[in-house]
Amino acid sequence: MDMQRDAQQPKTDTDLFAFLDSLGIAHTTKEHAPVFTVAESVALRDEIPGGHTKNLFVKDKKDNYFLLTVEENATVDLKTVHGIIGAAGRVSFGKPEKLMEYLGVIPGAVTAFGAINDTGLNVKVIIDEDLMGYEVINAHPLRNDATTSIASNDLLRFIAATGHEPLVLKVTA
């Protein structure tokens, strides 16, 4: 086991904001009570405009990992999405341990911003085409008691700056 990797603490929201600032990316963050589900976060809609995200951390049978970031009310067909994202066969949800290891977040705080923690580029980051229709995208800043708003094109710039190729694909029904 790689002890150096184990010792590496996941980046925090403070690290994330500093990284966004270093890229010249405008962002605003609103603190709120922790939310674990889309249903719990609906109360925030009036206060935070833009597209709100739902994130699916999935893997295929060859242990390739994918993060699908979609609009919160969108539906992803897990039986067929593998054909769109280039997975080896059907996908299933990744385990919380891998979520923490690769993206540095817990279930309920999954976010495209987790790409900042995936220094080994173990996860393919996919943004749904429909979500890109929003000028502003809202996502957790590595914790689920705040929401960070960022321009949709800046989200792609952020993902690219982490070394990932942001793939914009139509993954929702």
Score class of each variant (00 low, 15 high):
T111W: 01
K124G: 09
N117G: 11
P107R: 05
P107Y: 00
T69K: 12
L68H: 07
V136W: 14
T75E: 14
F93M: 10
E101V: 01
L68I: 13
K95H: 15
V123M: 09
D128R: 00
G104W: 01
R90P: 10
V91L: 03
I84K: 13
V110E: 00
A115K: 11
K98H: 14
A109L: 05
V76W: 04
N117H: 13
T80N: 13
L131K: 08
E101L: 11
V81F: 07
V70K: 07
D77R: 14
V105T: 08
T80Q: 12
M132P: 03
F113Y: 05
E71F: 11
V91Q: 02
L103G: 03
L121R: 13
G83I: 06
P107E: 04
L68T: 04
M100V: 06
E97C: 04
P107L: 04
L68E: 01
D77T: 11
S92R: 12
V123K: 05
E129D: 12
G86C: 06
F113S: 03
L121D: 01
D118V: 08
E129I: 02
N73Q: 15
I106H: 11
G94M: 02
A74K: 09
A87L: 06
K98Y: 14
G104E: 03
G133F: 04
D118P: 06
G114E: 05
D118Y: 05
N122P: 01
L99E: 10
Y102I: 05
M100L: 15
I116C: 01
I106V: 15
L68D: 01
L99I: 11
D77S: 14
N73Y: 11
G89E: 03
T75M: 12
G133R: 08
L131M: 07
I106D: 13
T80S: 15
H82R: 08
V110T: 08
N122L: 04
T75Y: 12
I85R: 04
L67D: 09
F113N: 00
A74G: 10
H82Y: 15
V76R: 09
G114M: 02
E135A: 13
K79S: 11
